[in-house]
Simulated assay, not measured.
Amino acid sequence: MGYQSGRNILVAYKEETTYGELPSASGGKVFRPNTGGLNLTKGTIQSNENRRDGMTTRARHGQRNLAGSYSGDLSLGSYDDLIAAVFRGTFDAPLALTGLSLTVDDLARTFTRSSGSWISDGVKVGDIVRFGSFVTAANNNRNLRVTNVTATVLTVAEDDLADVAVAETGITMSRPKKVIQGLTPRSFAFEEYEADIDGSEVALGVRVGSMQIQLQPNGMAVLTFNFAGQNSDVLEGADSPHFTNPVATTSIGLTAVEAVIRLGDEDLVDLTALDITVDLRAAGTEVVARTTTPDVFTNNATVEGNMTALRKDFSRVKNFLAEDVLSLHLLFAENESEPKDFAAFYIGNLTLASASKSELGADGPRTQTIGLNIGKDERGGAFDPTMIKFQTSAV
């Protein structure tokens, strides 16, 4: 009899139609894990019997609890459904505008339209947009980060636009799909198929409890999803694996060195670490007369972040002292020609919770650790009503 290796394991999952019930075998998706796993535990029910023989009665099993995590390299389209789940949101349809009449000011980094409204058309601060059909080709088919929007003027972060003093007509603009936070709960079934011993553990009623985005020097952009679930079962023989031909994405992993990170009005090139965590504090609840929680319950979302940067001036200290409201935009693009496929996270309403410098006397540069206070953006109009949003060019 052979033993199962630690690598020849397929992780697949599918959204449940009914909470806690195994969905059909087709239409599953492969999770591309670095590490992780889901495990079922049970509470212990200990008898309080006072025995005259000086011994203890064997304990019984209590309610089941399923928890665990998987981490994976951020890549195009690989985890969109799980990101939407932790946001409790739904991706909107990509935005496509045609027939625009625009001028471009390369110094002000603005696109000004002759008629209509960017805001009414659905363009928001923190979106990434792409223009097309300019005679001035340098403005076409590029990922442009929107930093400000009024009815007629759209401002972007990129400073290498080509000036268009006389309005050009017939211009197009696209904004790939995005998701903001909402209140729609989703649950999944996860299967770990252990190919060496031809069997599976299937976890049911699994909700995404939290997600962490983590960047380190010379590392991949890593997403870690923490899960809480209702139950688990074993499948063997002809029943395993349950999910037939689950689909795996083939997009390349996105790296920290390729990331473009903008805090406030500055693109940062001096970060040594960054992490952002979206947490729903998901958990089951103990009840009588059954061995599983009726559901896994989520709570108000919190978004927390920390970054470490080289210390070059006192600007972050002044931001901290003044409680300045800033934004944070993380853009990850594939290494290809324009328009580059991308995944991006945007936080529109944050202040610095700390700006603590490293101790003196250490070798190398002095660093500062910056904590982030993050809340819902309630400005309306040109701003999405969310704490964090995710946008991607993945279909």
Rank of each mutant, 00 (worst) to 15 (best):
G284H: 00
A238L: 11
Q4S: 07
P185Y: 02
R379C: 08
G284Q: 05
L223R: 03
Y346C: 04
R64K: 12
G205F: 04
D196N: 09
L74D: 01
I83V: 10
T35R: 15
A67R: 05
I276L: 01
S117N: 03
T184P: 15
E323P: 09
E168L: 09
K29H: 12
W118D: 00
T224L: 03
Q4R: 02
G375L: 04
V135K: 04
N143H: 11
N349G: 11
R281N: 11
P33K: 04
V179E: 00
R88M: 07
T57Y: 08
G37P: 05
V166I: 03
G126M: 01
E334C: 07
E304F: 11
S354M: 06
R60N: 14
N335W: 14
K177G: 05
R186S: 10
R186I: 09
P94Y: 03
Q46G: 07
G229R: 10
L97Y: 06
E336G: 14
V123W: 07
L350T: 00
F243S: 00
S75K: 03
S120N: 10
P94E: 01
G381M: 01
K42N: 12
S114V: 06
D265K: 02
G205M: 05
T272R: 09
A283Q: 01
A333R: 06
S117P: 08
I45Y: 07
D267S: 09
A84S: 01
F345V: 02
N141R: 15
S47Q: 02
R113W: 06
F87C: 05
G54W: 00
L144N: 01
R60M: 12
S24H: 12
I213V: 06
S210Q: 01
L360W: 14
R145K: 13
Q368G: 09
A248K: 04
A189V: 06
L280T: 11
L274A: 07
D80Y: 07
G348E: 02
K124A: 05
A344Y: 14
D363G: 10
I388N: 00
G43D: 11
I180V: 04
S24P: 15
Y346F: 12
F383A: 07
T244M: 09
R113C: 04
T392G: 00
T367G: 11
A228G: 07
S115H: 03
D233Y: 08
S47N: 08
T298N: 01
L82K: 03
D198K: 14
S358E: 06
S117Y: 09
D80F: 10
V234I: 13
E15T: 04
N306G: 14
F227T: 07
N335P: 10
S210V: 02
L161N: 00
